[in-house]
């Protein structure tokens, strides 16, 4: 479990993190979304005991990051957004070094390392030097490294950044496996759809402040009250335009270039949406299809972060 209380980090007059409050329950996969420089990596660095907060604190499995950093380190597996590897070490030696750094005995390491390599699909590369591994393989190796001491909490800063689509899918599958293993995972990305698939909850951070938190659908619902409705017509377009323009819950009505499709924003709930369709049909408007367009997650993200800037 992770508990963040009024966490603030300032660099001179610049506030990188502004009174962040967050609770992540055990076994939850929490996605931290934000633009570059929003404060994600700062939060992660503080949680990983690599950066001291200006004020506030955080607890990881009950251990205070300020007062018990050593205990915190044994609870977390940390993967930074940018990391290097020791090129002249072999894959097995790389993991063995970190295993020893966490105080695991040689027997434990010998037992664990093949299992971890299997988990991240790198068993066939166990005797390869780390510098010959691809970017995706290095990311997976780093993930295996963060698991070597079997931490309950994983802090993964942009684990899929810079990966090709196949490597992203592989990374996603590994994270799903870790979720099944009951790990509490805090994962960041600046790409919202990337997280939406694998996270139970997401938090959107902007300019050091948490501006939204909840499930992906919750956030969409809460922050996007308007739905985009697409209506395809079989003639009678002018009549349809007049009808929809008269409806008080409809706004920003436009006609598409094909001349037979209308789109508009609708502010009502599901019942009112049904009523709108019924009323249109009662007016003999020739509707071929009446559909609600899926809200683009990127649009939601842009909308939320724009709101913060305006406020």
């Amino acid at each position: 479990m992770i508990e963040i209380i009024n966490l603030t980090k300032k660099y001179g007059k610049f506030t990188a993190l502004d009174s962040l409050n967050l609770t992540i329950e055990k076994g939850t996969v929490f996605g931290f979304v934000g633009q570059n420089g929003a404060g994600k990596s700062t939060t992660f660095s503080i949680l990983a005991t690599l950066l001291s907060p200006t004020s506030g604190t955080a607890y990881i499995n009950g251990y205070n990051i300020s007062k018990e950093p050593k205990q915190v380190r044994s609870q977390i597996g940390y993967m930074p957004d940018f990391f290097g590897v020791y090129d002249q070490l072999k894959t097995v030696e790389y993991l063995d070094f970190y295993g020893a750094s966490y105080g695991l005995s040689q027997n434990e390491r010998q037992k664990l390392i093949p299992q971890l390599l299997e988990l991240v699909n790198l068993s066939h590369k166990q005797d390869s030097y780390v510098d010959v591994l691809s970017r995706g393989m290095k990311q997976r190796l780093c993930l295996a490294r963060s698991l070597i001491h079997d931490p309950e909490v994983l802090i993964l800063d942009e684990p899929a950044s810079g990966l090709d689509p196949r490597a992203r899918v592989e990374m996603r599958e590994i994270l799903k496996e870790l979720k099944h293993m009951g790990k509490t995972i805090l994962i960041s990305s600046h790409i919202l759809p990337e997280l939406a698939e694998m996270c139970d909850t997401i938090g959107i951070i902007d300019q050091g402040r948490l501006v939204a938190e909840g499930s992906v659908s919750d956030i969409q619902q809460r922050l996007k009250g308007e739905k985009l409705i697409i209506v395809k017509l079989y003639g009678g377009v002018d009549k349809a335009i007049r009808f929809f323009e008269d409806q008080h819950l409809v706004s920003k009505l436009t006609k598409r270039d094909d001349g037979a499709t209308l789109e508009f924003l609708f502010q009502g709930n599901a019942k009112e949406q049904v009523g709108l369709l019924k009323a249109a049909l009662m007016q003999d408007i020739a509707i071929i299809s009446f559909s609600e367009m899926e809200t683009n997650l990127e649009d939601v993200f842009m909308e939320i972060t724009k709101g913060v800037e305006l406020s």
Binding site: S45, A48, T49, L50, K70, R73, S74, I76, Y78, P80, F82, F83, G84, V85, Y86, Y98, S101, Y102, G103, C142, R145, H149
Partner: peptide
């Protein structure tokens, strides 16, 4: 500079 220090510092050493 090689970005290996942060990882090393999060270990129990």
């Amino acid at each position: 500079e090689k970005q290996t220090l942060n990882i090393l510092l999060t270990t129990n050493q």
